[in-house]
Design a protein around this nucleic acid. Sequence first.
DNA 1: CCATGAATTGTTAGCGCTCACAATGTGCCT
DNA 2: AGGCACATTGTGAGCGCTAACAATTCATGG
Lengths: 339, 339
Amino acid sequence: MNHLELRPPTMADVARLAGVSHQTVSRVLGDHPNVREETRARVLRAIEEMGYRRNSSARALATRRTRTLGVVAANTTLYGPASTLFALEDAARAAGYTVSTVSLHKLAKETLSEALDHLSEGGVEGVIALAPQRSAVEALAELRHPFPVVVVGTGSGAEIPSVNVDQQLGARLATGHLLAAGHRTVWHLAGPEDWQEAADRVTGWRTTLEAAGVEPPKPLRGDWSPLSGYRAGQELAGWVGRGLTAVFVANDQMALGVLRALREAGVRTPQDVAIVGFDDIPESEFFAPPLTTVRQDFATVGKHSIALLLDLIEGRAPSGTPGVAIEPHLVVRASTAPD
Amino acid sequence: MNHLELRPPTMADVARLAGVSHQTVSRVLGDHPNVREETRARVLRAIEEMGYRRNSSARALATRRTRTLGVVAANTTLYGPASTLFALEDAARAAGYTVSTVSLHKLAKETLSEALDHLSEGGVEGVIALAPQRSAVEALAELRHPFPVVVVGTGSGAEIPSVNVDQQLGARLATGHLLAAGHRTVWHLAGPEDWQEAADRVTGWRTTLEAAGVEPPKPLRGDWSPLSGYRAGQELAGWVGRGLTAVFVANDQMALGVLRALREAGVRTPQDVAIVGFDDIPESEFFAPPLTTVRQDFATVGKHSIALLLDLIEGRAPSGTPGVAIEPHLVVRASTAPD
DNA sequence: CCATGAATTGTTAGCGCTCACAATGTGCCT
DNA sequence: AGGCACATTGTGAGCGCTAACAATTCATGG
């Protein structure tokens, strides 16, 4: 309880109590095979009795392994990043690693550099960067760092190893769903230009329309926030009755704003305009109306990222198929089909 | 770039290149006053040239300070915990500490114990526990750990130092606001019994009603999820016209569910029933209608928690006024007042 | 009964850094 | 010029652990 007690016991202390050498204690802790059962028991008892814990710094110094990974991210209060963070942490811990996180307000080159410095000082063996913006990856590619880095969510620009959800597929699912429901065309409210995900969703949307022989309308731009969706929604409302019957919105939060703007403009969803979002945040199911959206599997993203990073750290050939994006799924709700 | 390069340079390497002793390099890095300006420059140049970085493990071993804090949390994808996590990380980094996070699915005693073990193995100097459930604090109190622990969000049971938002005040603001608007009574959809915040909000709501001479209706229970709010909302709808004109919902997600259930039942908000939520998640402003809610200042929570933990680690008397809860604020929107 | 090898344990030397102290250099006063 | 205080630098000893090797024990079989 009292952390100010004299200094914590060392391996030598345990060894003394157990009547063995410190090396034997180390062997027991390391699950070495060649330790007599009785000795092991004696050592374990001594460890228990003294409440001994290995000193991680000394261990790290001797082994040259800190068993710590770093994660750099921005916007960690948003559902997507928060979920990814969670999955990463889970996967890393399962692999016996500790995770140090640096949450930034913005992924500018300078802050990124400071973050890597901070993690580097902390002795991480590798870093996962949740860098959805292209500029962030570019900055990352220019930065020197003494450990491998894996990027999550910024396509495979090939400069840096990465793990991704197939955003284009997600957009194709969304757009295709609307076309299949009989809509002649599908409008798109996109995310910020600099975001890879936003770009990929635009591409997926555009190609789906083109494949169907439809000229894509000019996409609108938002910044992921409900407010920007609201503003775009007001603009979209003006096109109702002039060919706009379906909108694919690049994320659920903006879709929420769009829904509100349409409702205020007297436009009914889905009767007048069908809406599809992206992310499947927990709230989406209870929007007015419940939102059809695209769900990403963050747990898988986390597992793959950690696996890839560990491969790089160990110097093995990456075990997962490289460049394979994780498949998202369409979740159909009332915003595209009256129930 | 290549992390498999020969072994990274050591302080001795830098010293050799700069023509000084390793101790002088250490002094330069430690900003020691007594180093000649010219020497310092020479050392810094050598450091730069070799791309030297101090080995944190060796440093930690020698100083007995890891400069690492741990955070244990569950439900980190929710807005509140995610925001707190962010604030904690920010505050810790500002204080020169690295943060290791353990995100749990559930704060059971066993998982908590494993989490503390994991962090302990990682050499943390102290831990912040985001433990909103009373059972979690109790479990925490029973566990032995060789470092100080600060709990966030579970009242001041006094067993463990804690930092809190004044949930009762928040509930009083919400309930008072509704009473002031002329409602005769206010119903309450509470969070899970075991959660301290839920209990505090119930208390704040109840005392406000009692102070106004109103007998509080029996509170409903939800589990924070929109779905549970939806179910409760269906039940609440049945009381409309029989005295129910206002509901204080213990969080915004449930309020979303309530709003939907009421709408489906043909009950208008706020004309027929006014709703107040709690949390002010980013979506709340765009609900149908926009939600009046209570905002918590997570950044302050983060700063206070870290400050308190560092005080405990350093063995100082806590600098902040102990037990002082952080004030939340009411954000009034259309769900309680037609615009 | 002793040689032989395997199983088990101990010994020694760092890992790269900081701390305490020793040694040297510098300026200034008398 | 000598001496003293102070600034500056160097030296040695760990911090607590693991890795490599050395030493010991133990069972076997000839």
